[in-house]
Design a binder for these strands. Structure first.
Lengths: 235, 235
DNA sequence: GTTTGTGAAGTTATTCACAGCG
DNA sequence: CGCTGTGAATAACTTCACAAAC
């Protein structure tokens, strides 16, 4: 049911795969046929051995002497990340952030089919965002029955985030991605991840305060265990 | 000029400080006077030794036998993170994400003073978002002269993100936080970090595909070196 | 000649386990 | 006793360096 090599891939590597994926997508679009680990490393702001090691976990897809076939490698990464699988995503909370996510290429252009948008505001319910109608949260369970979502995204105000999480779990969602600045609890079998839009800002603040920053980089959300928490207050 | 212990704190720890900060803020608000490493660990989805080790880098702020004084610890973390310092932030790109960030408690409630909002759309310029007028990007340099921003946030479409980064750097910004799905280049002295709103989704997809997820957690943007890339397409 | 793939070495981070303080 | 703070042990991750493949 799943691609070649399984959960043997180190978590740190898994977190970088989306980075390579994005870069390869850009390269393929630009018509670049092959890329070396050196080039890829420069674009990803990591070092070349790391790239090679990461990619080697997926198998041997490079050609010694010339590098990696961009299209071929991209296809394998997509497969490994499960981006060739249909993962219906529902978004609850259609404020500014919810709308940004709903419309985002990052979501829709990557196998993530946004299958439902929910809110409780009567001003929003019935409107369209990114070609999809916003429905009242009370229709969540019904909608989930017809088209069971794999992932529930929470972009509500923090005060209602836990309630929404409970309802998502109740509706059968197996994974929850929380953007609300609130610590959430879900049953053990549910995969919960939490993205905090202001953590990077705070980390920046730390390095600004201490003068000594660790070699500027393109940063984002890696680690699965040691992680952040909510932070942005969305509408 | 800077707090007690300097850049000696491991990067992984620094990335967790904002997590503790948020939890402590909630605890203080809730009137909880003390907290043990065990409790803090549970709330942060990490283990207790890690909490103790992380906090020990800041000094000895706990009381054996009873735990940590929430208010006291919070104050120290704030100081360590530089949250008691004025860091003027300008946001370029006032689409859905830009608006979410501009209005976010996460930004404004934490010492980050949003000092300017910029866009190029004539429909947006002149409007108010979160009590601040949106100005045309052409006024960036002028505004930066009057109130020099410490941090520039990019929430534009990817196509113009590099240009915006160049202008921010030109205007004297020392740190850039990029939310656009594009790899950016900045001069070596500028601290650049990149947040990708869809990386978590892709990591989730990986673990969904491979069945075997690594103990659900609250996730966010830790590592400084190994990092992510752009992803969400905002308006 | 170039660039991958990978053991081995080195580094950083996590967890253990317990002495020491309140 | 309870809970912190920390050295020592373990585990994870990164980087080196080079043989093998093209």
């Amino acid at each position: 049911m799943s691609p070649p090599r399984a959960g043997r891939i180190p978590e740190a590597s898994v977190a970088r795969l989306p980075v390579y994926q994005r870069i390869l997508l850009e390269l393929v679009r630009a018509g670049t046929a092959t890329v070396s680990s050196e080039q890829l490393a420069e674009l990803a702001h990591v070092n070349a051995s790391k790239v090679r090691k990461d990619l080697s976990f997926l198998g041997s897809f490079g050609t010694r002497g010339s590098g990696y076939d961009t299209r071929f490698l991209l296809a394998h990464i997509d497969r490994e990340l499960g981006l060739d699988t249909d993962w219906p995503v529902v978004i609850v909370g259609i404020g500014n952030l919810g709308r940004a996510l709903a419309r985002s290429q990052g979501f829709s252009s990557r196998g993530f089919r946004v299958s439902g948008l929910f809110d409780v505001s009567s001003e929003l319910v019935g409107t369209e965002v990114g070609g999809l109608a916003v429905r009242h949260l009370d229709h969540l369970e019904e909608a989930a029955g017809l088209d069971p979502p794999s992932i529930g995204v929470i972009s509500t105000p923090p005060s209602v985030a836990q309630d929404v999480a409970d309802r998502l779990v109740g509706a059968g969602v197996g994974s929850v991605l929380n953007f609300a600045p609130r610590v959430l609890r879900v049953p053990g079998h549910v995969l919960l991840r939490h993205v905090d839009l202001s953590i990077e800002l705070q980390v920046m603040s730390f390095y600004l305060s201490h003068g000594d920053h660790p070699g500027s980089v393109a940063a984002s959300s890696p680690l699965p265990h040691p992680v952040g928490l909510g932070a942005v207050d969305l509408a």
